[in-house]
């Protein structure tokens, strides 16, 4: 019965302490009371014995060894990369310091590298590289020249001053050339003969004066009325006859 008391412990309390007893978490005093109840209670005693036996049987099972190829099979089925442990098992013991440093660096770089190797990123990086190489070749930059560049601070400062001096020198040279050219033209103007100048001037005037040339002929006189007759006249003589209108008398 649940409320039955044996050795100062009721069956309800026994059941409550059952798991702690099986897990051996009971204190010495509780353990003693628990065992005493189990010895005398006809219900709790066999139940506890059965549970303890079952637990004992289960605990007697030893861990089984997985098949030797299990890890490799899993890796082949997932990442597709064979075990580095097995591959490096032989060489690991004789690895030099450089190899160990490289291995250490790989542990950081491997995630980045594996991301970069993904097809969606690989295509983007390919396009970016292609664009960059085209831009560099258009700009006249040769990759071979880059290896000769000295990146020391003193060398970079010297390169800066040399380049700026070259630009200033180029600008001064261009200015001198233009100045000489303009002086030569002025000198030519001054030394040109007067007659030649007159001829030139006349020619220029002739081009500007267009009064001697006939007026461009108009195909139609839009200011004339329909009933108004067209008068014949010579350009030299003004018309002697005034305009006569012939009317038909009805």
């Amino acid at each position: 019965m649940p409320g039955e008391t044996h050795n100062g412990m009721q069956c309800n309390e026994f059941e409550a302490l059952l798991f702690d007893a099986l897990d051996q978490k009971l204190g010495a005093a509780d353990q003693e009371r628990f065992r005493a109840h189990a010895r005398v209670c006809g219900k709790c005693g066999p139940m506890f014995a059965e549970l303890e036996a079952g637990q004992h049987w289960l605990k007697s099972l030893k861990e089984v060894e997985p098949p030797a190829n299990l890890v490799n099979d899993i890796l082949a089925a997932t990442s597709g990369i064979p075990s580095y442990r097995l591959a490096d098992a032989g060489s690991r013991t004789q690895a030099s310091l450089g190899e160990r440093i490289r291995e250490w660096a790989d542990s950081f770089l491997a995630p980045v590298w594996s991301t970069v190797r993904q097809p969606r990123f690989a295509m983007s990086f390919g396009m970016a590289f292609f664009s960059l190489s085209v831009a560099l070749s258009v700009a006249g930059v040769k990759p071979g020249d880059l290896s000769k560049v000295d990146f020391r601070p003193s060398a970079m400062r010297r390169t800066y001053y040399t380049t700026s001096a070259r630009v200033v020198k180029y600008y001064e040279n261009i200015r001198l050339v233009y100045e000489i050219e303009s002086r030569v033209q002025e000198f030519k103007k001054v030394t040109r003969p007067a007659q030649q100048r007159e001829e030139k001037e006349r020619e220029r005037n002739h081009k500007n004066n267009t009064s001697g040339e006939p007026e461009p002929r108009q195909e139609r006189n839009y200011s004339r009325d329909e009933n108004q007759p067209v008068l014949a006249c010579t350009p030299e003589q003004a018309p002697a006859v005034s305009v006569t209108t012939i009317r038909r008398l009805v």
Binding site: E63, V64, P66, L70, V71, I74, L75, T78, S79, I81, S83, Y84, R85, D106, S107, A110, P111, S114, T115, Q118
Partner: peptide
């Protein structure tokens, strides 16, 4: 998750025995 194959192998090595059992 970042794609480190070595880390994945470490996980497999750690848990294969337990899961197999």
């Amino acid at each position: 998750i970042a794609g480190d194959a070595v880390a994945w192998e470490e996980i497999v090595q750690r848990y294969n025995r337990r899961i197999y059992n």
